[in-house]
Amino acid sequence: MSVPTPGPRPGDPRPAEQRPVAALRADVEEAVAGLDDLDGRPVSEHPAAFERVHATLGRALTSGSERG
């Protein structure tokens, strides 16, 4: 039995980016670093900060799933 390779969801208009792992790691580290000063920012800004990290992690995971 073969296991399907994960990839973009059907109908997802965004193509998976093919970027070097080091670049993806740097993107993730930068996004997570954006949470460092969260305690000094208004609570109303927190959701946007978490959404940026979530989106960056999603892109990194999607790009990583295309490697093989």
Score class of each variant (00 low, 15 high):
S2V: 15
S2H: 12
V3Y: 07
V3G: 03
P4S: 05
P4C: 04
P6S: 11
P6M: 09
P6C: 11
P6A: 10
P6I: 07
P6N: 10
G7A: 03
P8E: 03
P8H: 08
R9A: 06
P10W: 01
P10S: 07
G11C: 07
G11A: 07
G11N: 08
D12F: 05
R14L: 09
R14G: 12
R14Q: 11
R14N: 13
R14P: 06
P15I: 04
P15E: 11
P15G: 08
A16M: 02
A16P: 00
A16N: 04
E17G: 14
Q18P: 05
Q18V: 14
Q18W: 09
R19E: 15
R19F: 14
A23D: 15
A23M: 14
A23F: 15
R25E: 09
D27V: 10
V28Y: 00
V28E: 00
V28L: 06
V28G: 00
E29F: 04
E29T: 09
E29R: 11
E30I: 12
A31E: 01
A31F: 00
A31P: 01
V32W: 13
V32I: 15
V32L: 15
V32R: 10
A33C: 10
A33G: 13
A33W: 12
G34H: 01
D36T: 01
D36K: 01
D37C: 00
D37L: 01
D37W: 00
L38M: 12
R41E: 04
R41D: 02
P42Q: 09
V43C: 05
V43P: 02
V43M: 05
H46N: 03
A48W: 12
A48L: 10
A48N: 15
A48G: 14
A49E: 04
A49D: 07
A49P: 01
A49M: 02
E51V: 14
R52E: 07
R52N: 10
R52L: 09
R52K: 13
V53M: 05
V53S: 02
A55I: 14
A55C: 15
A55V: 14
T56H: 10
T56V: 15
L57F: 06
L57C: 08
L57Q: 01
G58W: 04
R59H: 14
R59W: 10
A60C: 10
A60P: 03
A60I: 11
L61D: 12
L61K: 15
T62Y: 02
S63D: 02
S63L: 08
G64L: 06
S65A: 11
E66T: 12
E66C: 08
E66G: 09
E66Y: 03
E66Q: 10
R67I: 07
R67S: 12
